[in-house]
Design a protein around this nucleic acid. Structure first.
Length: 1037
RNA sequence: GGGCGGUUAGCUCAGCGGUAGAGCACUACGUUGACAUCGUAGUGGCCACUGGUUCGAUCCCAGUACCGCCCACCA
């Protein structure tokens, strides 16, 4: 059956993909040759509920090109696929889906039920992205598909695997090595998802904000002389003040202020440092303290310090040992819990006066006055401002107003509110304003594991390309902050830590148990819950609030650790999962108590790990670690990681740190970083802009190969990736071009009885020798480009070779040859050349090449397993190359000359040679039919004198004339010649200028000088010929 | 504020010491033994600006302007 005119991608891709999958063509080690190295790539796992976007398409195309290339080379190749459980994102997607379906909410169904619901969601979505990757042609070993939550305790059937075990083991190991710790820190809190997030998950965005100025009055009605001076020390303002002025962009946080800070060098406030001020709206006094943090030149120079809701203030509060009062709940509403305000503030005053306290008590005190309790933080802000304005504690300014009716002017006082651009933190997922929040969280002590990760890149053990990526990497790692890894969500790896009472609490527990029992005996009844809690609180308050941690792989091991810790005289009991607090932990003492054996209650930490903690273990986790699997032996460290530069910190740096910390090896030898795929204009693709290009639609329209080739072509190192559909269409056309060259070959019997040949035929015709050489050249260039991750150069080379050399010239040259003596050799050559086009293109365009491969000959193996060529340089035959350059240049020149003087394209002309060197004559003789055909020349005659009324074409070693007396417009031909002469003159001028400069001859390398001379001679020769032609034309007209 | 990149044909980009290239777009012609998803020919550039190094700079260095991206705690 003859070939169709075009490749039917829609039909063929599915069929070919099935063949690959059915034959397990992508399995690890497929096509591996003995003695060849391993080549392994870890896919950046897409979110399990995600779908393929252009970034994936780009990223995976590059991985696939490398993988297919190495597989063809015979390397032991593994491309490890899989998906990420993507904690917050997946939980969000599932909850949204549940809401849509009218299912009960997450909290209503409870943790266990919700988790199985997420697993269900995962099962549903998983096929989507995997199928989409397969449509792209991704040659992953699909039998090895991994999942970052596989083997989790609640995983359903079919989700076995040990990724979860690996994650937990790493946590436990790192914990035991002191690399992971828990602490109450100020963290970024996402009020929408009600979880902590890491620094990296915060997006700082500039928004329009306001700055308000408040007065905090000095206690006891004290006053001071407030003096401002200019830079020369001259007094510019002097007044008696009974207040200090502070500025804030977040007025609602003033309710939690612990102090006002000024710079120690700030003379304006020197008289009042150490004095107390009234905190407006609150019955509290706070001190004026000094700290290096306030900038005397900014605002009033005085800063309110709210330790629990601002990162800078927190640092100041720590230095000054100020209590940090938390004002908001997990949803960033003003707290409504705890004791009434009057009670809380009374206790706060005691604490301020020096009464002993601890972190947990401070945290439990709700210092939000009743009227603000339960308000959203932004609502509270409005209220606070209004209330401060009302009591006259805003800094005001005088405004002159004109009464529109009477025209009379009067002055009015108005609070100063500055409009100001402020940087505001937003959650990268939730897009809500992030609240610094003082909570207990788990951290990786990154400072302790960062050095090996830095060294690995510094020493070149791991190479990052482009090189600028290394600078970014260093910059971040050298300034690394502790990594908050606990998340207050449900979908994820639960932190393997159980809490029990610390020894102080055990002691307190024994005491409270005694009190509890004696009370009951005294009253002769059971205590009420309130009575019981009162006892508990009394005893717990004096104990350290830090719980005893038991970090272990599982419950049993935790129990074992606990038993060892508390001694045999205790009974270990696990509290229900979802509730935990130290208060209730202590409360457990009032529960099971039998025969002098204390019941110790353990609670498992309800939090889960940051998704990036588990994906940080992707390289070893997917290979079966902690088992020492053969795959781990063979494929780790992996060869190349290809990923977006946007996750260099999230993922790359953390993989480096974690792999080094866990197995003391780098996870990969090379990291290839690429930018974000943007639209043709360079804009970010976004739904709101409506410029999103869906890779699947592109595949439907142009085929996967076109998209892939476009991706490769735009993958220049470090550049911005602008995707233009016009370009994709162009590469689809490129595929068609190759297709039709093969179709042409088919029509000419090239494929008859063809079997794959690694070595080219012994060619006698220059054209065949030439194209064999061009093929060898292209193959070498493509290999080199891929070696250097220059996908763009590989694509460019192939495009130019296949279209510009094979199709434009070789196919045309072959046409006359098929009729001659060298027909057989030419058929063989063409088959070999086209085979190599397919092979070299296969990593980039796998579908069309696999299809052509099957269509065009008898093949021992699928294209996907065909050997990558290593063609010896001797195939590049210099004389043939030179001769064909002469031929193609001559054809180009004749065509150009004809077109410029408007000779009809179809008209065959005679050619007259007025001068020809031996080389030129040989070149002509060898290729006459080719030239005649392509330049539309009838005959070649030789004369010594050029005919009059002819156009002239100068070639190397020859001058040709095309007699056109009466046909051509003399003026037009003169113009044409003049144009060429002008160009030559410019070149000659340049070359001459250089050669005549003595410094040039003295300093430039010999070969450059020589090349200049040769060039000049050639140009001058050509110019002479054309000048002569010009003269002849002038003689006529 | 700190860091990293970019500025080359109308558009999107290569090139990065020897005097500028591709694709697309555009113009003219064209069914020449595969291909109109095509062919042939052509138009189009003080390679951002200013200095410096060099025999020679689009390319190296310094500065300027503009444009991106990343990081950052000015209340």
């Amino acid at each position: 059956m003859p070939m169709e005119k075009t490749f039917n991608a829609a039909e063929a891709e599915a069929r070919i993909s099935k063949t690959w999958l059915d034959t397990r063509a992508f399995r690890a080690g497929a096509n591996a040759k003995p003695g060849h190295p391993a080549f392994s790539v870890m896919i950046p796992p897409p979110n399990v509920t995600g779908s393929l976007h252009m970034g994936h398409a780009f990223n995976n195309t590059l991985q696939d090109i490398l993988t297919r290339w190495h597989r063809m080379k015979g390397d032991d190749t593994l491309w490890q696929p899989g998906t990420d459980h993507a904690g917050i994102a997946t939980q969000m997607v599932t909850e949204r889906e549940m809401a849509k379906n009218g299912e009960p909410s997450r909290r209503d169904m409870g943790r266990e039920a919700f988790l199985s619901r997420v697993w269900q969601q995962k099962a549903q979505s998983r096929g989507t992205i995997i199928g989409q990757l397969q449509r792209l042609g991704a040659s992953c070993d699909w039998d090895r598909e991994a999942f970052t939550m596989s083997g989790a305790p609640n995983a359903p059937e079919g989700e076995e695997g040990n990724f979860h075990d690996a994650v937990i083991k790493v946590f436990v190991d790192m914990y035991n090595k002191g690399l992971i710790y828990r602490g109450k820190r100020l963290v970024n809190w996402d009020p929408h998802f009600e979880t902590a997030i890491s620094d990296l998950e915060v997006e700082n965005t500039e928004v329009a904000g306001h700055m308000w100025h408040f007065k905090y009055r000095l206690a006891g009605g004290e006053t001071y002389e407030y003096v401002e001076k200019d830079e020369n020390g001259a007094v510019t303002l002097r007044e008696t003040r009974d207040y200090i002025s502070i500025a804030t962009t977040r007025p609602e946080t003033m309710l939690g202020d612990g102090a006002v800070a000024v710079h120690p060098s700030d003379e304006r406030y020197a008289p009042i440092v150490g004095k107390m001020v009234h905190l407006p709206l609150c019955d509290r006094l706070i001190p004026i303290i000094t700290d290096e943090y306030p900038d005397p030149t900014f605002g009033s120079g005085a800063v309110k310090i709210t330790g629990a809701h601002d990162f800078n203030d927190y640092a100041v509060a720590k230095r000054a040992n100020l209590p940090c009062y938390r004002l908001m709940d997990t949803r960033a509403q003003m707290r409504a819990d705890g004791a009434p305000y009057a009670e809380a503030v009374a206790r706060a005053r005691e604490i301020a006066a020096g009464s002993p306290t601890n972190e947990s008590e401070v945290d439990s005190l709700n210092l939000v006055p009743e009227k603000y309790r339960g308000l959203d933080r932004f609502e509270a802000r409005k209220q606070v401002i209004a209330d401060i304005n009302a009591i006259g504690l805003s800094v005001t300014t005088l405004i002159k107003e004109t009464d529109p009716e009477t025209g009379s002017e009067h002055l009015r006082r108005e609070p100063v509110v500055e409009a100001k651009k402020i940087m505001q933190p937003f959650g990268d997922r939730s897009k809500v304003v992030i609240e610094p929040m003082l909570t207990d969280q788990w951290f990786v002590d990154t400072a302790k594991i960062v050095e090996p990760a830095l060294d690995a890149v510094r020493t070149g053990q791991t190479k990052i390309i482009p090189e600028s990526g290394e600078k970014t990497y260093y910059h971040w790692l050298e300034n690394i902050e502790p990594w908050c890894i606990s998340r207050q969500i449900w979908w994820g790896h639960r932190i393997p830590v159980w809490y029990g009472p610390n020894l102080q609490m055990v002691e307190a527990g024994i005491k409270l148990r005694a009190e509890h029992d004696s009370q009951e005996k005294l009253l002769g009844r059971s205590l009420t819950a309130d009575e019981r809690w009162a006892i508990i609180d009394k005893h717990v308050a004096t104990a350290s609030s830090v719980p005893q941690e038991f970090c272990a792989e599982n419950k049993d091991k935790a129990a074992q650790l606990a038993q060892e810790f508390y001694g045999t005289n205790t009974k270990i009991h696990f509290q229900k999962d979802d509730v935990w607090s130290l208060r209730s932990a202590a409360g457990a003492f009032t529960g099971g108590y039998e025969d002098g054996v204390n019941t110790i209650s353990l609670f498992r930490d309800p939090d889960v790990l940051d998704t990036w903690f588990s994906s940080g273990l992707w390289p070893i986790g997917t290979l079966g670690w902690p088992e020492q699997t053969p795959e781990l032996q063979k494929y780790f460290p992996t060869s190349t990681l290809i990923t977006g530069q946007d996750i260099i910190f999230f993922w790359v740096a953390r993989m480096m740190m974690m792999q080094l910390a866990v197995v003391n090896e780098v996870p990969f030898k090379t990291v290839y970083l690429h930018g974000l795929v943007r639209d043709a204009k360079g804009k970010k693709m976004s739904k709101s802009l409506g410029n999103v290009i869906d890779p699947l639609e592109i595949i439907d329209e142009y085929g996967a190969d076109a998209l892939r080739f476009a991706n490769a072509a735009m993958a220049s190192l470090g550049g911005v990736l602008k995707l233009d559909t016009a370009r994709i269409a162009g590469y689809r056309n490129f595929g068609t071009k190759l297709w039709n060259a093969c179709r042409f070959a088919e029509m000419n019997g090239v494929w008859e009885g063809h079997r794959t040949q690694t070595q080219p035929p012994q060619a006698s015709a220059t054209v065949n020798k030439w194209i064999i050489g061009e093929t060898a050249k292209a193959a070498a260039e493509v290999s080199e480009a891929l070696e250097n991750y220059r996908f763009d150069q590989a694509a460019d080379t192939l495009y130019k070779f296949v279209w510009g050399k094979v199709c434009d010239w070789y196919v045309e040259f072959a046409k006359p040859l098929f009729d001659g003596e060298q027909a057989g050799e030419t058929r063989e050559t063409m088959a070999w050349v086209l085979d190599h086009c397919m092979i070299l293109l296969h990593p980039m365009m796998p579908f069309i090449t696999e299809e052509l491969w099957a269509t065009t000959g008898t093949r021992a193996k699928l294209m996907v397993h065909t050997d990558w060529p290593e063609l010896p340089a001797r195939l590049i035959d210099a004389p043939s190359m030179a001769e064909m350059t002469w031929v193609t240049t001559l054809i180009d020149d004749i065509r150009s000359a004809r077109a410029q003087v408007h000779v009809p394209a179809g008209l065959k002309l005679d050619l007259v040679a007025t001068a020809m060197t031996e080389t030129a004559q040989a070149a002509w003789a060898n290729n006459a039919p080719l030239i005649q055909r392509l330049a539309r020349i009838d005959t070649l005659t030789h004369t010594t004198t050029a005919p009059k009324g002819a156009i002239t074409v100068a070639a190397e070693g020859a001058t040709f004339a095309i007699p056109l007396a009466g046909v051509i417009d003399i003026a037009e031909e003169k113009a044409r010649l003049q144009k060429t002469l002008d160009k030559l003159a410019k070149e000659i001028g340049g070359l001459n200028g250089r050669l005549k400069n003595p410094a040039f001859a003295a300093s430039a390398p010999e070969e450059v000088v020589e090349e200049c001379r040769t060039n000049l001679a050639a140009r001058e020769d050509e110019a002479a010929k054309l000048t002569a032609a010009m003269t002849r034309l002038s003689e006529i007209g």
